[in-house]
Design a binder for these strands. Structure first.
Lengths: 337, 337
DNA sequence: TCTAGCACTTGATAGGTTTAAGTGCTAATT
DNA sequence: AATTAGCACTTAAACCTATCAAGTGCTAGA
């Protein structure tokens, strides 16, 4: 596509994103300093429409971009908008002020939704590659034990175990020490394997207690390992037109189930690189009028994801730079600061 | 107010909540089996309007309830709607399936928002009255320590401490033991007092480390103690008319800051009793067209809050029973099961 | 005390006209 | 050959206007 045609496409996208109304040739020329007349622009537009980059909602209206239009726009977008100093300051200040991992996650997701005005999702640092820094068994009261696991990423997992009988303190003590010796400084993925013989260990004579704990522990290190996410900005939906938000509602509910997230953020390559899905490129149902902008972020040893979901009609340059910046800062905060 | 007038008021409220349109005398008589003619109802309506229970949006329209109307309706509401067996089953099933406190909170808040169709808020069990069951200091890496506190309510708090120098393991070990001996099985409110002399303790010779930890710990047991809440159902806003949701947006953002919550849920008496604020009864700005239904829930030793926020036009009987039921079950789950 | 009947009010609906924005095409211009 | 001016044409939106439906208050009779 030649230079001028792309300029026209960009201008259309820019205006349409801003006004949310079809863009005509005349106003385009006025708002952007294109050095040609409306008639010329009209000719370009006709071609762009033939090639599927833009469409007319009805005969006498202006043009709006198609998914394909957005896609080429995004692909050609090399100089991404820089964040303003104020925005950069906001990011660092907010994130540095966080006190624990939950807080960091909460603040990050909120920040991202505010910067972009979209719904934002942040995955907790995944555990699989992390290392167990600490394990403990705590008796909360007569019939309840809490298992606490801490990863080197700072992520902490807790689970309570309910017992039928009173806690057997001596077995608990023994089990606690065995666990500490066995899995501290080991990787999460290895844990399940390392503890599989505990249930047959003759030293541990309270079988019920031991098997309950081991069972829960296995669940912690496998199932829960990468399913935890936080969401913010669902209220941004209210700002959008209701038709769109109605479509998105069920998706949101699903996301809260923490399952669809991965499918949504999509298969990503092994780097902290940006990924964009526009409209119909999304495989998830109901998301054909939405775009997803996601990025990985690196925490020392492993790669997790974050991103936003919004209408295809969004400010891509701004969104991209926000997502990228937040991912970078988050990695830095969680990394080996 | 006499019996029949109240019946008319109730019928108006019921229909208005269902249809969201002003209610006229004729359709009222049709839909409810009132044993009188429309003309009689009209007379009653005229009186109700004089007394401020209902208003007419314009001369030729039906009536809609005022805040005062809802209030008297709610006050007279003694037989609360029973939850259906399906709903009760949903509550128990969902809550019993939860694995840890975070999970319980998450599921509770989501459940409440689904049952009521409103935005729901749940406060974590407050710490002030709770007892410290466990404290630990964990070195995550060379320059980071994590403080972990577990309350007898099952609530777990974590904070990381960043150090300039490498972790001094021997001091850490000493401090850990001292802390364990001093504050285990003590109440959260007492902790701050119990550890105030640690900074001057001559045995602990790494002053920087000790003071950093003690400082953070004090924050944990005081500031954070009752400010943690979860929210769900913000997407329900999208279902409502946009004018209303626009008003509510800033409030929601504030709520996410975890501060306004208490003001919102309001001063509540010392029991697990229900509290309802209708429209202008709310002191929080921007909430004059919203109602708040909240309840306390009891976790062994202390009282925390949960509730919902929605438009004044809501199904009070249903909402009330849902809030009440969830509060009760939550208390039961978190209690001494 | 209740109800039937009726004149009156008024937002919503439906139809028709005008308007504004935009297009495509042709012919003139650079 | 590419650009531009001019113009006929299209169409949703905006604007009227008349009609309609739903509702009311009031009076008189049951």
């Amino acid at each position: 596509m030649d230079e001028r045609k792309f300029a026209v496409l960009s201008a259309i996208i820019e205006d349409y994103v801003a006004t949310q109304e079809p863009i005509g040739s005349k106003s385009l020329v006025e708002r952007h300093s294109l050095k040609v007349s409306p008639a010329t622009v009209r000719n370009e537009m006709a071609v762009l429409e033939d090639e599927g980059y833009i469409v007319q909602p009805h005969t006498s209206a202006g043009r709006i971009p198609t998914d394909k239009g957005y896609r080429t726009f995004v692909d050609r977008l090399n100089e991404v908008r820089q964040l303003s100093p104020a925005e950069t300051r906001a990011i660092t200040q907010v994130l540095e002020g966080a006190i624990d991992l939950d807080d960091v996650m909460q603040k990050t997701v909120k920040l991202l939704s505010q910067l972009t005005g979209q719904i934002s999702l942040v995955q907790y640092p995944i555990l699989s590659g992390s290392i167990v820094k600490h394990i403990d068994l705590i008796s909360i009261n007569e019939k309840r034990i809490m298992i606490v696991l801490v990863a080197n990423s700072g992520r902490l997992e807790q689970v309570t175990v309910e017992l039928e009988n009173n806690v057997d303190e001596s077995t608990l003590e023994l089990l606690r020490n065995k666990l500490k010796n066995t899995i501290t400084d080991k990787k999460f993925i290895e844990v399940s394997n390392l503890i599989k013989n505990f249930e047959n260990d003759t030293e541990l004579n309270n079988k019920v207690l031991v098997s309950k704990v081991i069972e829960k522990l296995k669940v912690m290190v496998t199932q829960k390992s990468d399913q935890k996410i936080v969401i913010a900005g669902a209220s941004n939906l209210a700002k959008l037109d209701s038709e769109f938000s109605k479509k998105l509602l069920p998706v949101l509910d699903e996301i809260e189930e923490n399952v669809v997230m991965l499918k949504l953020m999509g298969e990503m390559v092994n780097e902290d690189e940006l990924f964009i899905r526009i409209g119909h490129e999304n495989k998830v149902a109901n998301l054909h009028s939405a775009s997803v902008v996601s990025s990985g972020y690196i925490t020392g040893d492993s790669l997790s994801k974050l991103g936003i979901v919004g209408p295809t009609r969004m400010d891509y340059p701004g969104t991209i730079s926000a997502v990228r910046a937040v991912a970078r800062y988050l990695g830095r905060i969680l990394g080996n600061k």
